[in-house]
Write a protein that binds this DNA or RNA. Sequence first.
DNA 1: GCTATTGACGGTAACGCTAATGTGACCCGG
DNA 2: CCGGGTCACATTAGCGTTACCGTCAATAGC
Lengths: 364, 364
Amino acid sequence: MVEVGSNQRRTTLKDVARAVGLSVNTVSRALNDMPGVGEDTRQRIKAEAERIGYVPNIHARSLVLGSRRTIAMIVTNLFNPFFAELVSEAESRATDAGYTLLLLLSDESEDREERAVAAALRSGVDGVLAVPVSNDSRAFDAVIRAGLPLVLVSREITDLHADYYANDNVAGMRMTTNTVLDRGATDVVLIEEDLQISTVRNRIAGFRLALEDHGIPFDRRNIALIPTRRSASVALPWLPWQAEDAHRVATDLFERGRRPHAFVLGNDHFALGLYVALREQGLRVPTDVMVIGWGDQPFSRYLDPPLSTVALPARQVAANAMKRLLHKVSGGQGHPETVIIEPELIVRGSLPRSPALIRGGTTP
Amino acid sequence: MVEVGSNQRRTTLKDVARAVGLSVNTVSRALNDMPGVGEDTRQRIKAEAERIGYVPNIHARSLVLGSRRTIAMIVTNLFNPFFAELVSEAESRATDAGYTLLLLLSDESEDREERAVAAALRSGVDGVLAVPVSNDSRAFDAVIRAGLPLVLVSREITDLHADYYANDNVAGMRMTTNTVLDRGATDVVLIEEDLQISTVRNRIAGFRLALEDHGIPFDRRNIALIPTRRSASVALPWLPWQAEDAHRVATDLFERGRRPHAFVLGNDHFALGLYVALREQGLRVPTDVMVIGWGDQPFSRYLDPPLSTVALPARQVAANAMKRLLHKVSGGQGHPETVIIEPELIVRGSLPRSPALIRGGTTP
DNA sequence: GCTATTGACGGTAACGCTAATGTGACCCGG
DNA sequence: CCGGGTCACATTAGCGTTACCGTCAATAGC
């Protein structure tokens, strides 16, 4: 069995140099496939380095090269599978390009976000990929001041002049809302998280645009915001709670005598609680009430009835963002760019098969 | 607006030293709260460093200190919320201890696992926290050979002498199986992933123990293994597919005339597909068939009926593992230790309220 | 046959930081 | 009044690599 935690001195370039009787310099050039070394010498050096178990000291290399070949990714949480997918794709792309990924979680807290940014800078990363907590640019100003490439994903910061990659929340929510309106709903309720982020703002904007499209006046009562639970200044958009809160919000509506024809949601997890609330009210989906979720979670197609939802191009967004970031990291230029990708509506049993199946909302 | 990607030279200790008219060394000691600096001088130095925006160069510091204060975490994927929670907790603990977390994904592929380990070593991390892909120790031998602290989480490698932290899969599955047996089931089917990992092995062991507890002979037909989908040698335990595969496996059983009294599952996602299969067969939960899942996913309590399942102490496991790793990283000794935590059965509507409600399995 | 040119290699200086060792001023006791 | 100790700082030596220049021989060109 190999001994753990041995404290033998690591073999360095100097050791290899001594072993082959050449200079440190030549050995370095040989191992890095730099010109200026005879081919046979190069092979001999490589063989010897392998033999005595030489592993380059990344710290020294980073110091002289000024790069650690590492990307920091700052994400609010991993419980939202959308973020998990973003991180997953980003890791894969970074690895393929010979970079590693430093993961920092901000937990929807501006405090922690600031600390994450500080940690990223301290760690000497080559670039930062971030899903910001809010519209406040303060934390990320530090990144820009440090001269580090920065790319934002999924959430925009309005007055920050940075690259931004996301899916189209405006068009997406406009599409879902229009879908239920086209099918005869006139009283639609949007359930959303109460977070101060562009994602929510844009989805609300899309929702209002759809109402406009159909000449329906917007009322504040068309939107139900689910307050974010916080603990010690850390937001907790914990998925079970989202379902629970959606259940409560919907039940409140019904108890106040409201009876919407359709719900469009900012999150598939809201549908879990909403479905229960509807069952409790004896309302049937989609004949009494239409429901469209957001995010196409794995469970959504297995609900009863299967949940219509919006599939988000998470991998594509992350891939584009990382590609752009790596381009900037390796000295690439160009004005900050914004790339917004259209999401896709997935129609399932929670929508009536054909339009205009619901009229007036109440079944006779 | 701040210019992005500027190439101004970073301010170094020397700049601070010149600004305050002191030596580099004194500035270093002042900023690191080392003795040998007058208190007023220290404050003056700190203020000046802050003013001119000094950020220590981690590369240089790492070189001289021989550490980057970074932990590598190698995980198979982030789609399984259990792993997402492990990573989340690990990141939090590492951050609290002044470390950063390098995330590497192995995608259930031994190839990628080996590359992840290599990347971790190249990156000069101080320790490795890993969920291994298989029972093969080869990849992690390299970690031990490099003298790096290694802690395994959630999956064990039998012949690797390393610390290991997990939840008790044997006891957990024994408990769930005993629960349905206690309530009168005699024909129980376990649905599991077909992965060569200790997790699955142990859950199967627990399942068999429960059968023994009840004097029921074990038959190969008591276990339905769901083959892992692979693409280009990368396993894809993608959650929607797990549900789909469970649906298929269950339907196959029914079509071959099998009619189990209970299903115990290795994963809540299997329940999604199973529920659909049961509905298609006109079978009711829990009166006709009992179901217990595994992992307490957010959606599980919102299924119809709510899914009984096993809640896993993911955060606790990760916290213990990271604590142990950080202990070893800072030179701590001790024999490799194994800590196994009991999971908790959560009883919901997919189990009959009182034992012995089902007899013989068929309702009259 | 003598000078340019090329190729293979060595010497040395960074990179920015910390740690070990020096140095001078000051204080204190005898 | 002087020796020894203490404090506040400076000087210097690395850490292991890569980059920039030399050097020296072999070869090519006229």
